[in-house]
């Protein structure tokens, strides 16, 4: 039985990580096709990718869009959560529902909707429109995480701060936000990774300046190459880095 459960564990991990391992492994492939047998290792594909100006521009664009759109989504989500948790308005429940609803809509539908709206308004597809699209998908996420983290505990501490003479701004910056720090960081990094990985909205709402997933997609159209594996590995590395930062900063602290 014991062996069986270990075998099961191993099988699960192989199932989850095999594609990633293969991707990373063949990024070190020496020949021109990322297929067995493995004849590496070499770093030349990484050199190719890092020297590719389009690719590096796309990477910078992606980072820019992810960091800024996540920050805006976090801010909007925080204000919405703060308002809806504090004040009982008629229709609070409905408002909460409407705020979270976009999470259930597929990115393709959201992208088509945004494309139509931007066309009618006369906005050209650009990094800006992509950024707006990413704010749209990340506000519900940030709102849901932050709203769930605000309890009576929080409300009482805010009331105590007001009683001790804090203005509304001081309440937000000195009490609400610090108390929510773990949730704020978690929401921000999740929003960053969602934006970083996002393809459909970015594909439909960009034209000349593209984000990394769109650039990788156009590279894939010209066929497989270890270079795509190399860029894939780099993207994976960034995601892992974010995860490790998150683990070290947010989750470790909230455990102690």
């Amino acid at each position: 039985m014991r062996i069986l459960s270990w075998a099961y564990l191993a099988a699960i991990f192989v199932f989850i990580f095999l594609p990633v391992v293969v991707l990373v492994l063949f990024s070190f492939q020496d020949s021109r096709l990322p297929i067995p047998p493995f004849d590496g290792p070499t770093l030349k594909w990484y050199a190719t990718v890092l020297a590719d100006r389009n690719m590096m521009e796309a990477l910078a664009n992606s980072l820019l869009v992810a960091l800024i759109s996540a920050a805006i989504a976090l801010l909007l989500g925080f204000f919405a959560a703060q308002g809806l948790s504090r004040v009982k308005l008629p229709g609070s429940v409905l408002m909460r529902g409407v705020l979270i609803a976009p999470m259930t809509v597929s990115y393709l539908i959201i992208a088509l909707g945004l494309l139509t709206v931007f066309n009618n308004l006369g906005f050209r597809p650009s990094l800006w429109t992509t950024g707006i699209g990413h704010v749209v998908i990340n506000v519900p996420l940030c709102f849901a995480i932050l709203f769930a983290a605000m309890g009576d505990h929080q409300k009482n501490a805010e009331r105590a701060a007001r009683d001790l003479g804090a203005s509304e701004l001081q309440v937000v910056f000195l009490v609400s936000a610090p108390m929510l720090k773990p949730a704020l960081l978690a929401a921000y990094f999740l929003a960053v990774t969602f934006s970083w990985d996002e393809f459909i909205i970015a594909f439909l709402l960009t034209r000349f300046d593209v984000t990394l997933p769109v650039e990788i997609w156009s590279m894939l159209r010209s066929g497989l190459s270890p270079a795509t594996n190399a860029i894939g590995s780099l993207v994976f590395l960034v995601s892992i880095a974010i995860l490790i930062i998150l683990e070290l900063t947010v989750f470790r602290k909230s455990k102690s």
């Binding site: 105590a160 003479g165 203005s167 610090p178 108390m179």
Partner: peptide, 15 residues
């Protein structure tokens, strides 16, 4: 915040 009163709350409400 502008009253000369302070309150000690039931659940303490410490920061």
């Amino acid at each position: 915040k502008d009253r000369p009163t302070t309150t000690m709350f039931q659940d303490y409400a410490l920061f």
